[in-house]
Each structure stands twice: as C-alpha cells, then as structure tokens.
Nucleic acid binder design. Structure first.
Lengths: 341, 341
DNA sequence: ATGAAAGCGCTAACAA
DNA sequence: TTGTTAGCGCTTTCAT
C-alpha cells in the first residue's frame, strides 16, 4: 500500500493541511511541528503523489522541451541533459517532445500533449523559436515558454542566447591571425536564427581586416556531416581553393575534414578547418576540431530557471529574463598557419 | 477555462462515464453514441487531463527510461528517440531518468521519482541491466521493467536483445574473409553484458578459422573515443602490428582511426578498422566505419510494447517477452584487404 | 498557526 | 448498454 498524506498526518498528530504546508515549505508552521512532520515523512518514506498534487493545484511541475532535430545531434542531447539535471534539482520533471515540423500534422499532437499534461512551461530549441505560428499558438493557450538562441522574436518572451555574431567574429579573427587571407564559409540551415548571425560575424571580421570575400567562398549547408562534405567538395573543387574553411557547426566541419581526406589535402598543413558548438563530434575527429564552445547544458538550465521563476508568467518580456551566456573559442588541432605560397 | 469531461457529457447528453468509455475505447457503447460523443470532443477540443486519469485509475501512462551513460552517446540518444516515438503512438509518455550509478546517492533520487510519478514501467538500458541491486529494488517495489541487452539476468524479466556474439562473429568473419589473419580487439567496459559476448564471438570466429589470438591482441577499452585512441596506440605500437582492429563500438573505432592517422598509417590500405553499433559517429568519419547496425530505436520501441502489454505485469518471465532483434553487418570504407606482405 | 470541508477531473465498482 | 456513487491524494478556501 502506498503511503499518503493522511498516514503522515495521523502519525504526526496533525492535519493533512499541515503536512501539505511542510512538504511545500510554506510559512506559518512552528518549527517543532515542522520537524515532527519531517521525521514522520522520513520514517514512512512518504512521497507526495505528483498527480494528486497537480490535479488540485494549478501547477503540474512539468516542463516541456520541444525539439525539432531530426538528426538528434549532440546539440539536442546536450540541451536535454542540461534541462533534465536542472529540473531534477528543482523538483520538476521534463517531458521531451520531439517535433517534426517538416511534416504536416504535428500541431494537434503537440496540443494534445500540452493540454493533457498541463505543462507549466516549455523550452523551445532552435529552429522552433523562429516559428511565429508556433509561438502564436503557445501565446494563445497561455503557455509560458523560453526561447533558446532565438532570432528576431526574442522580444516577445524570455530567451537564452550566446553572442553568435561575436563568436563567429572571434573564430574568423582566429583564422586571420593565423595568417589566412582566403577563408571559406559553410552556412547552416537558413531557418536557424544563428545562420545569418554567424555569417555576419564572419563577414565583419573579414571586412574589418580588409579582406575581400568572394561570392563563391560562401556556400550553403544544413548542419549535417553530409552537408559539410558537399560544401567542402564545392569549396575545395574550385580552381583556387581557400586555405581555411569555417563550417557553421561541428558535424559539417567533420564533413569538410572528410572531403579534404578524400582529396589528399592535409589538415591543418594545407587546410585549416573550424567548427562551431563543441559538440561530442568535435573531439571525435582527427585532427580534433577547433570550435566555439556553446554551453548548451547551461543554456537549457538557465531556461528552466526562467520558467520556474514565479514572476515569469506575468512579465515574460522583462529584460532580466533574457540571458546571454559566454561562448569560448577552443583551439584544437584542425587550425594552423596556412601553407607558404 | 479548461474543458472537462463534464462539459462533453452535458453537451452530448450522456453521462461522464460514457464519455470516459469512449475516450478509452472501451466496449459496450453503441456506435451512434460513440460517434456523437466523438463529435462533441472534436467540437470542444476536449483533452482528458492526464493527472486526473492517473489519479483515479491505477495506471499513470508514464514509462521511465533509465540511462547511465555519462557520455550521452548516440546510443543513448537513439534509444530515447525510439522509445519516445513509440510512447507517443501508444498514448504514453516517457520520463527519462539519467542515473549516475558511479556516484553514491542515486538511489533515493530514483526512488523519489518513481514513487511520486507512479511509473507504469521502466526500460533499463545497459549497463543498468547488469546491476542486480537495482533490479532487486525494482522488484521490491513491484515496478515492471524490461532490460535492453542484458547479460545473465535476462531470465528474471522481459528483455530486448540482439545476438551480440553472432554479430561479433560476423564482423570478425568479414575481416577474415578479406584476408586478415592478425586482428586486434578493443573491448568495451567490463560491466556491460555485451563485452564478454562480443569477445566470445571474436574468439570463436578466429579459432574457427584456425587463427591464433595472441594475448596482446586483446586490449581493454571503455566505449569512448579516448579509450579507442589509447587502445589503438597500444595495438599499433607493438613490434608487429595487426592488419585489422575490431573496436567494440563506433566511438572507439574512431579513436583507432585517429591513432592511425597520427602514425601515418593509411586506412584501410594498411589497416582495417571495424566498429559496432552504427551510431551517428560511424558515418561522421573518414573513411566511414564498417560496423554492426544495432537497431536501437526499434529495440526501445519493442521494450515499450512489452511494458504496455497488459499481461506483462503478471508474467514478466514469459518467453514471449524476450525478444531478439536482427543485427546487420554494414560494410563501409574502413575495411579492406590487408596490405601485401 | 492550524484545521475542516470542498473540490480538482477522472475512473472503478456497482446498479439499473 | 448506460448511469450513479464514491473516491484517487492532494491543495484550496475559509474558519478558528
């Protein structure tokens, strides 16, 4: 038989309401009573039933993490891990909702899930934060949400971000400082807010150093290994090829690495390669990839903190709910000085 | 205001119990009534409150996925994805519980979570299935569970598995068929049930082909890139080195690949490398890794099916709840004939 | 500071 | 085949 609040109340000689107060850390309980109750709780191993609690109170103690990441990459995994850990610390639970916004019909599914679980809030990972219809929908049903690395829409809600443009600038600067003059860029999926920002950082570093950027040095990508391979092939197949390639994430950097290997181009001797994210794959390569560390776990944790903040619901646009976390340039073996002319 | 079962009942002119029956697909409802109710449900956009349902029925419609994977590798991610998708199809929800059994104090946390969520069942990913104390604990509280790739303990409960030994045999055979005679093996973490099985498959293929296996051709590993790198260094640093290395998973195969690159050993020209799992990293390498495809997603889905089966709870040891899914040998660019002598 | 009573929205058991 | 009556275990409201 499961132990309920009644058992505890009876045993402690108080009312169930008092036990409830103690369990929720509410005020107006004498220390002696509080301690007595706690003792009985320990003794009996009482665990409040999450369903009963959610049913009677307005809160569900459940947060949703919405992901649209078909590749289920290290990025998504890191995000989830960070959110999960923080949720547990705060006595919340996390419900992961993988969406496939590429296919039709995701909307009712999501709605059903939200409605039946009475989520207290949601974390939207990119590229979902750049989907106004989704945000509108959430606004419509009054579900608070926090955006991770949003684009323009970050005014309407809390958000956690890094300085994408600054990071891309720093990486490009690193390559320039090594002596590179001709650098190629492989972009990310256009729908990700990070894509234009990373390009902007790249261009501003190049232009700031007085370096021209030829139109054919920027090629599209899709954040996958395959995309990096194709982008790398395109850049390395040109009559004159760049001495460095900046891929907009690590998986694509690995793709470039593979393209170089295929063509017998030594990395970093003849070609420097840079990535972005510092996901698990960046270290699982040879040479290991120079990249930008994005603290995905901490970003997710920060999002949880924001959602749990009792005042968030009423003032989601308050600037203090917009956080920017620091990135870090991680120099590894894939970048070096360009080959002598 | 949220729409409850009462609103639907009233509007449809039936009792709440009838609505409940319709929602749960129970029998004993006339088609006409069922349809009428469904229409109202659609009209009002009614979504049953999961908490109320769980509170009054014995079930929570929640399954737990217990993972102890500090690296949060592609393996764990694939497992989760598979479980998540199947859960959604079956109108269940998944709660992911990352455990750290390496550290003390995980037990009360887990217990609290299980108790307060009233999980209907749990999926135990390796190496948790090889932890008798955990299984005992779950048995103690009467929580049904399914083991993924268990070792000896698979008698006591439902399980989903592949033929680890057969798969390792097939991979070794593949290398032998290519002409390799001297093959190194990098093992996995000893606590994983798969480790001894994969070694057994390796040895039986070698011995079956009349090939000796020197003691120093088998080195320990830990399923990480770093471990593969070290293992590779060890094997490639010997006076005479093997012409092929079979790493017990993909991440380690990548490590071997890196070790080879470091020493200027061409893959597959001078060294063949094989992995296991066919996780995301196997394709994110150059050359791509020859490996064993383990259908992790389907394995997790199968585990969900078993847990949801109404008769599972009463007969967890029934053989029909022990499933073995097919593996597949995936030949990619990392294996080829050995170099001529 | 504490308690009694009344639900939260649903399903189980029983009745009709 | 359908409806009625009690709860599930907790929190809320309102007393005291």
């Amino acid at each position: 038989m499961t132990i309920t609040i009644k058992h505890v109340a009876e045993r402690a000689g108080v009312s169930t309401k008092t036990v409830s107060r103690v369990m929720n850390g509410e005020a107006h309980v004498r220390t002696a009573v509080r301690e007595a109750v706690m003792r009985v709780v320990e003794e009996l191993g009482y665990r409040p039933n999450a369903f009963a609690r959610s049913l009677s109170s307005a809160r569900s103690y459940l947060l949703g993490l919405f992901l649209d990441d078909p590749a289920w990459s290290g990025y998504a995994a890191g995000m989830q891990r960070g959110a999960l850990i923080r949720c547990r610390e705060r006595h919340y639970h996390l419900v992961v909702e993988p969406l496939d916004t590429g296919t039709d019909g995701w909307e009712p599914d999501l709605m059903a899930s939200i409605a039946s679980l009475r989520l207290d809030g949601a974390i939207l990972a990119p590229p979902l934060c750049a989907m106004p219809p989704l945000l509108d929908m959430l606004d419509g049903i009054g579900l608070p949400y926090v955006l991770i690395s949003p684009g323009k829409d970050h005014q309407r809600s809390g958000s956690v971000d890094i300085d994408e443009e600054g990071a891309a600038f720093a990486m490009t600067r690193h390559l320039i400082d090594l002596g590179h003059r001709d650098i190629g860029l492989i972009e990310g999926i256009p729908s990700h807010a990070a894509t234009p920002k990373r390009r902007a950082g790249f261009l501003s570093a190049m232009h700031g150093a007085g370096l021209p950027v030829d139109r054919d040095r920027i090629v599209p990508g899709d954040f996958t290994f395959r995309g990096g391979l194709d982008g790398g092939e395109a850049l390395l197949g040109r009559a004159t090829r760049p001495t460095a390639i900046f891929a907009s994430n690590d998986d694509m950097a690995l793709g470039v690495s593979a393209a170089a290997a295929r063509r017998g181009i030594a990395v970093p001797g003849q070609l420097s390669i840079a990535g972005f994210d510092d996901g698990p794959t960046a270290r699982v390569a040879w040479p290991p990839i120079t990249t930008i560390r994005q603290p995905v776990g901490e970003m997710a944790a920060a999002a949880v903190d924001i959602l749990i903040d009792p005042s968030y619901r009423d003032a989601p646009t308050d600037p203090r709910f917009r956080r920017e976390l620091p990135y870090e340039l991680i120099v590894r073996g894939s970048t070096a000085a360009p080959p002598p002319l």
